[in-house]
Design a protein around this nucleic acid. Structure first.
Lengths: 109, 109
DNA sequence: ATATATTATCGTAATATTGCAATGAAACAA
DNA sequence: TTGTTTCATTGCAATATTACGATAATATAT
């Protein structure tokens, strides 16, 4: 299979899992952390920063762009990537709600 | 390949991606939400609650247990699952730090 | 026009993930 | 003991993910 049965889950559950999935690879985590650290757009040098081949980085960037977490502006021959503030915030709201669920006061475990 | 090159990333980046990966499937999100909602241990009925076959649920539970996010106590013929508070909190710290990174004030995008 | 630089896409190989039927293991009941 | 219940494990098929070489596409420079 390898195919999640998304139709049996809520939109919220599917959304959470889609965001989580994109964070489920260290290269994409590293890309995002770098974009935050640089505190500005970054044109190029992501391939040097992360240690993967250019097509691999390009593919990871595409997935981040597909979810709307980053955007890329073309600047001459290079592309300038940065965090999409609004979409990052919406994503954060959803993920925080999930992570901040009250921890049950279980009396049996 | 299908194999992440974890050795080129920091421990933190790998940790974040491992936690995120386990949240990257709606069934596991649903299981965790149910454990939070019940606000107690749950013995059985996860298979009825989620709509997947018993071996499938068992496999998802195993992954959550491997990461330490839940624990299971055997009670007679059934097993009682609940959130592992301490580990959930540590996970939350790591994920919140990642999600709460300051949004760059980009002036180019 | 030709060359250079940067990023995207295609194609492919290796590995991982998902789901479930079949089966096993363990505790309990009659 | 025999049956029942509950959960775990095995084995397998279908699909997804990861990585990268080769190549295309685009813009700029000479």
């Amino acid at each position: 299979m390898g195919l999640a049965k998304t139709e049996m889950f809520t939109d919220e559950q599917n959304k959470i899992s889609l965001f989580a999935k994109v964070f489920g690879h260290p290269a994409r985590v590293a890309i995002l952390q770098h974009l935050f650290k640089i505190d500005a757009c970054i044109c190029g040098d992501l391939v040097n920063e992360i240690g993967l081949a250019q097509p691999t980085i390009s593919q990871h960037l595409k997935e981040l762009k597909n979810l709307g977490l980053i955007k890329g502006n073309v600047e001459g021959t290079s592309v300038c990537y940065c965090i999409d503030k609004d979409n990052w915030s919406s994503m954060k709201d959803i993920m925080l709600k999930f992570l901040n669920q009250d921890i049950p006061n279980t009396n049996c475990c």
